[in-house]
Amino acid sequence: MPVPEVTDSFTGSVNRITLGATKENGGTRSSTVAVGGAQNVVYGGSTEDAGEKPVVAMDVLDSKPEDWPDALVKPYKDVLDSPGDWAKMCVEEFGAELICIRFEGIHPDKGDKDASHAVKVTEEVLKAVGVPLILWGCGNDEKDNEVMPKVSGAAKGEKCLIGTIKEDNYKSLTAIALADGHFLISEAPLDINIAKQINILASDMGFPLERIVTFQATGALGYGIEYAYSIQERQRIAALSGDKIMAMPVICDVGYESWRAKEAKLEDAPGWGQVKDRGPMWETATAICLLQAGVDIIRMRHPRAVATVKNFISQIWKG
């Protein structure tokens, strides 16, 4: 029996963006990363329809993490208090295509470090690696508004991805990202209507929709992944159907969310297998599941999970 041709074709596509600026483009990056461009759902249509292959961004924290489980600390134990060396290790040893500096240490409850610290970390990482950077605030609006504009300035012209802007806190970061030539991450709490609204708000300030990447919030395997999956899928369908306000590439935070799961880190769990394996497996499963829905940039943490996911991507996104 012949296999019927069921592939839909679409009129729209996901925006294609290039992160990072080399010397010729006014930056100091040695490489750039293109994402987006899909003209069909994952596995749908021809190879060309798939657009750019998804990429892995590895997390580097601005300050030594205090609450990471042993399995996650182990690969980084010598570099955890040196963001530059940490980033270098992720790029050179683990093949990170982007580095995401997560400024957790500026949070009032997690160190309350100031802007000069954040700027120093940014400069250190910019110097240590040549890949494009993602600059991600701590999530406390007041502190992010105080620190992230300075971080943005420290990386001016590097075409970083900076975030996040939210429905009730978007003005200062949008303005500074526009001035400094960065791309923006718009964040919504697993709510596609709010996701669309934030993009409109940023656009109203004159920020080009073509320079936005959306973050719909991520749920790990067993912790709401189905909500994240269906929202990503709906955004992809909207983009393919021509909704220009939802045509952005997508970023998800698999590393942080997966390692919050108790299955990833509980030591005393006979019958669950060794704890050193569970975390990477949880992270891998979460990433690979979300890849099917249509995501473009995946933030990850454990080198083994990164290796497996990169291998999966290279098998599926050929050409």
């Binding site: 596609i192 209507n193 709010i194 669309k196 609204q197 409109i200 708000l201 656009s203 109203d204 709906r234 909207a238 909704d243 306000i245 939802m246």
Partner: peptide, 10 residues
């Protein structure tokens, strides 16, 4: 079309 508060405007 996906709903957003500013859907009329865009």
């Amino acid at each position: 079309q996906i709903y957003s508060d500013s859907y009329l405007k865009v």
